[in-house]
Every structure is written in structure tokens, then in C-alpha cells.
């Protein structure tokens, strides 16, 4: 197992290097230049050329790439072209908000979806199943920003129960932190809830038809024990997989949610950096996210052995 984990972790660096190269090329070959944005609307072509030179953007691409890659290998992701702040500091400043939103979303969506999916499978074809799967279909089809605005209108503007926007760190208290995450997590989580609930229902339905479930019923196990101890555990691997995919997808999903709810997270940082053509920030975030994807996948793979003892053997 140790060798397996070490191998997977080593592959993380390979993936990060390949992603780094692709992102670098995409950014530098795409039209648009930070120099023109920096120079402003009244700039002359000569001023834009001067800024390009100052930023080193007039050097050959391979030279620019090697300079950047050399910095990254030394743990330095460079500094923002616009703010002059170190990229790593900017990312670390934004990470708590994004992690908080992601964790609350996954906790909310995962819990409700798994319970809902199991119950829908238990009462397959019944009213409960139809309601739960209807909600799931809605979660898939309604865009995050529509749900977001509706929730803001109802809970923040009309009822004044929750704040409209912003983020409060956990060290300022649990409720201030949590209250700022409820609406964003609900908006963002609805799609994941739908995805996880549908997979859970399908997996549990399949397991419920197995012989050992008949045995469990025959030996007098309660419905709750049958569903959550026997069925859910055996249906766990695909559910863990889809939750893992959900965590990975969250990285892109938070972009819109962070914008609608004004949460100062990594998603907003990415969008702003792309708009400004702030190359060091975009490259830094993409490389780090690539590494995070690999690690999340590894964790999902490892979770299989927790869920299913047969895999451990």
C-alpha cells in the first residue's frame, strides 16, 4: 500500500508539470496581453511595448517558460503582474473561504443525498421516490445563479435571516462563519445533491436485490439496519466515487457561487486573473489545482478499502 501511495503521489508532480506546460502555452499563445490592459485606454503602442519589455513578455516563449518553471521548482510561483503580491500568498489568503464553502457544500449535499437516495431506493416507484428524484432533476436543471438569487431574495432580503453576501472566517465564531455559508452551500450543493442522490438510489436498488439482503430480512434486521448497515455499505464504492468526482468538480463550481455571493475564494481569484491576463496567478492556480485533483482521486481510491474489506485484501 505504501509503495502504491508513493507512486500515485509521484505521478502528481508529472501531472502538475504537464498541466503547467499546457496552461503556459495556452495563455501565451491566446490573443490579449496584460501590457495593453496595464497601459490603459490612452496608451500609445510605444508605451505598450515598453511595458511588455518590463514584464519580460517580449522574450522568446521557451525562455519565459524556463524562467517560470525554474521559479516553481524552487517553490516560488511568482508575483501578480497587477498587485505585485506573491501568487502563493494570494492563493493561501483565498483558500480558507473556498475550503469552507466546499466542505459545507459536500457535507450538506452528501448527507442529504445519501439518506435521500437510500430512502428513494427503499420506496422505489412510490411517492417519496418521485418527490426525491423530482428534486434531484430540479437540482440538475436550475443554474446555480438562479437558485442563488432566489435564496438571497427569500432568506436575506425578505426574511432578513441570513446575510446577502460575504465571508466570515471561522475564528470570528461558528455562527458568523456558518451563516455566511448556508445560502452559497445550498445553491452550489443542489447539483451535487442531485448527482449523488441518483447514484445512491441506483446502487442501493441493485444491492437490495441481492441474496444477502433477503438473508438480512429473514434474520429479522430492522429496515434501518438493512438499508444503512447492509445495503448502503455494499453500495458504497460507486457513491464514494461520485462524491470524489463531486469534490473535484467543486473546484470549478465554486467560481460562479463565489461570484454571486461575493465570497473571496480561489474561484474569484481565478476569474479575475483570467480577465486581467495575470499569467503568474493563472499558472499558479492551475498547477496547484491539477495536484489537488490527483490527490482527491487518490483519496477516493484509498476510501474503497475502508468501505469494502474485500478490496483491502
Amino acid at each position: 500500500m505504501g509503495v502504491y501511495i508513493a507512486g500515485r503521489l509521484a505521478s502528481t508532480f508529472v501531472v502538475m508539470a504537464i498541466v503547467g506546460l499546457i496552461v503556459f502555452l495556452l495563455l501565451h499563445l491566446a490573443p490579449g496581453s496584460p501590457a495593453a490592459i496595464i497601459a490603459g485606454d490612452n496608451a500609445t503602442p510605444a508605451q505598450i511595448t515598453a511595458i511588455n519589455h518590463q514584464l519580460g513578455l517580449d522574450r522568446p516563449l521557451p525562455v519565459q517558460f524556463l524562467v517560470w518553471a525554474g521559479q516553481v521548482l524552487r517553490g516560488n510561483f511568482g508575483t501578480s503582474i497587477f498587485s505585485g503580491e506573491p501568487v502563493m500568498r494570494l492563493i493561501l489568503q483565498r483558500l480558507p473561504a473556498t475550503l469552507s464553502l466546499s466542505l459545507v457544500t459536500i457535507a450538506f449535499a452528501g448527507t442529504i443525498a445519501v439518506i435521500g437516495g437510500v430512502l428513494a431506493a427503499w420506496r422505489a416507484g412510490g411517492v417519496l421516490d418521485r418527490i426525491l428524484m423530482g428534486v434531484a432533476a430540479l437540482g440538475f436543471s436550475v443554474p446555480v445563479f438562479v437558485v442563488g438569487y432566489l435564496l438571497i431574495y427569500l432568506f436575506a432580503i425578505t426574511l432578513h435571516w441570513l446575510p446577502v453576501q460575504g465571508y466570515m472566517p471561522l475564528r470570528r465564531g461558528f455562527w458568523p462563519w456558518f451563516s455566511h455559508l448556508i445560502l452559497p452551500a445550498l445553491s452550489l450543493g443542489l447539483a451535487y445533491l442531485a448527482l449523488i442522490a441518483r447514484i445512491t438510489r441506483a446502487s442501493v436498488l441493485e444491492v437490495l436485490a441481492e441474496d444477502y439482503m433477503r438473508t438480512a430480512r429473514a434474520k429479522g434486521a430492522t429496515p434501518a439496519s438493512q438499508l444503512f448497515h447492509h445495503a448502503l455499505r455494499n453500495a458504497g464504492v460507486p457513491i464514494a466515487t461520485v462524491i470524489g468526482i463531486g469534490v473535484a468538480l467543486l473546484i470549478s463550481g465554486v467560481v460562479l457561487t463565489e461570484t454571486v455571493f461575493n465570497i473571496p475564494g480561489v474561484g474569484r481569484l481565478t476569474v479575475d486573473a483570467i480577465t486581467n491576463r495575470d499569467y503568474p496567478i493563472i499558472q499558479g492556480i492551475m498547477v496547484i489545482f491539477a495536484g489537488a485533483y490527483v490527490v482527491v482521486n487518490l483519496l477516493v481510491d484509498l476510501s474503497y478499502s475502508l468501505i469494502d474489506p474485500r478490496i483491502r485484501r
Binding site: I152, G166, V260
Partner: peptide, 18 residues
Amino acid sequence: WENIADEQTALAALGAGE
């Protein structure tokens, strides 16, 4: 200076006194 990128959110925040 709060950097709220979404216009509708900024409007709601102004209405709510945030």
C-alpha cells in the same frame, strides 16, 4: 471598498444595508 463582482448581489447588499 468591497469588490462585489455581481451587480445583482451588490444591489441586494445595498438594499440590505450591508
